[in-house]
């Protein structure tokens, strides 16, 4: 399989997942704000930090983190490289060149989804229309995932698709935990304590994990168990350990996996041996940083191993025959 094709499939999956995640966090934040008392509401700023786009945001809007600015920036801003609309456009552009490798409908479906997202922007920005708009995006992204799972050959290309999706998903999980738990909701605030559980519920809901948490952990929503669930619970498809485990499985199907698979094992060891419930916020933040570093190392290993074959490799590797 050509490196370029593998890379396009990988990024298409990442961008679809990113669009879905962006839609999720906006929806959940909106609900959280309704549940918290006015004076402790964290507002919309955390979302900008979750998506790691503070620098661009500040350049465009200054420090005006009001609802309108943040939502516009996250949904429709074409200059924001991670906005929902930009992600869908990138997913479509990646799908365009690999039309022979994914089911025929994939490109058409993505194209329609992108056009829908763009032409209904005003609905997405309005308080009333937003929920329906974002729900539509999430539903369609899920449909894409189903379409690909059900109609694409489960070959190397599909492994790259799953790796892209899971890396993006794992990345978003750490971001949500990081911003929600450490930076912005200091547990020292006694005023906030009665609402702590509400915040963790919102974290779980943003990952469609609330109901599954209740089934799996069978306790009330608490910081300790939520962190365990989101970081280490192998059976929950959005937990960090699950997503990295998926990448490891995919790598096992591919050639030349030595380097990347070594990294998945390091990252898995790191997350599984930790006791996140014991970590104070500073430590947790540091720990999440290490996990994200691990993901980025993993991405780099995949990139250098599979996507960026260089002339220098020719000396060591004898050219392969198909």
């Amino acid at each position: 399989m050509l490196s370029r094709v593998a890379e396009n499939i990988y990024w298409m999956a990442r961008y679809i997942e990113r669009a879905e995640n962006t839609a999720r966090i906006i929806n959940v934040n909106a609900f959280l704000l309704l549940d918290l008392p006015k004076k402790v509401r964290p507002g919309w700023e955390p979302l900008i930090h979750i998506t790691g786009s503070n620098a661009i945001f500040k350049k465009m809007y200054g420090a005006e983190y009001d609802e309108r600015n943040v939502v516009k920036f996250l949904i429709g801003e074409e200059n924001n490289p991670t906005s929902l609309v930009t992600s869908l456009r990138q997913a479509r552009e990646n799908a365009r060149t690999i039309r022979d490798f994914v089911p025929r409908e994939t490109f058409e479906y993505l194209n329609e989804l992108y056009l829908f997202a763009r032409s209904n922007l005003s609905k997405g920005m309005s308080g009333q229309g937003r929920f329906g708009y974002l729900k539509e995006i999430i539903l369609n992204a899920q449909t894409m995932t189903g379409l690909l799972a059900g109609a694409m050959i489960h070959d190397h290309g599909y492994d790259f698709l799953r790796m892209g999706r899971n890396l993006e998903r794992g990345d978003m999980t750490t971001r949500i935990i990081d911003v929600r738990s450490a930076n912005l909701l200091p547990d020292v605030s006694s005023e906030l304590r009665p609402f702590e559980s509400i915040q963790w519920v919102s974290v779980l809901k943003s990952m469609s994990g609330y109901q599954m948490y209740r089934r799996k952990m069978q306790v009330n929503v608490r910081r300790a168990e939520t962190l365990q669930f989101l970081l280490q619970e192998r059976s929950f498809p959005r937990s960090f350990a699950h997503t990295v485990g998926e990448v490891e499985n995919c790598l096992g199907n591919l050639p030349r996996y030595t380097l990347p698979i070594k990294i998945t094992r390091q990252v898995l060891k790191l997350v599984n041996s930790a006791k996140p419930e014991l970590l104070a916020q500073e430590q947790l933040h540091k720990f999440i940083d290490d996990l994200q570093l691990g993901l980025s190392e993993l991405h780099n290993a995949i990139y250098t191993t599979y996507f960026a074959a260089q002339g220098s490799e020719l000396k060591s590797a004898t050219a392969v025959q198909k």
């Binding site: 399989m1 050509l2 490196s3 370029r4 593998a6 190397h156 591919l254 050639p255 030349r256 599979y306 996507f307 960026a308 074959a309 002339g311 490799e313 020719l314 590797a317 050219a319 392969v320 025959q321 198909k322």
Partner: peptide
């Protein structure tokens, strides 16, 4: 001076 394509298996002649 040979041509290779970049594949996930590495450069292929």
């Amino acid at each position: 001076d040979c041509v290779y394509m970049r594949t996930i298996q590495g450069p292929a002649r």
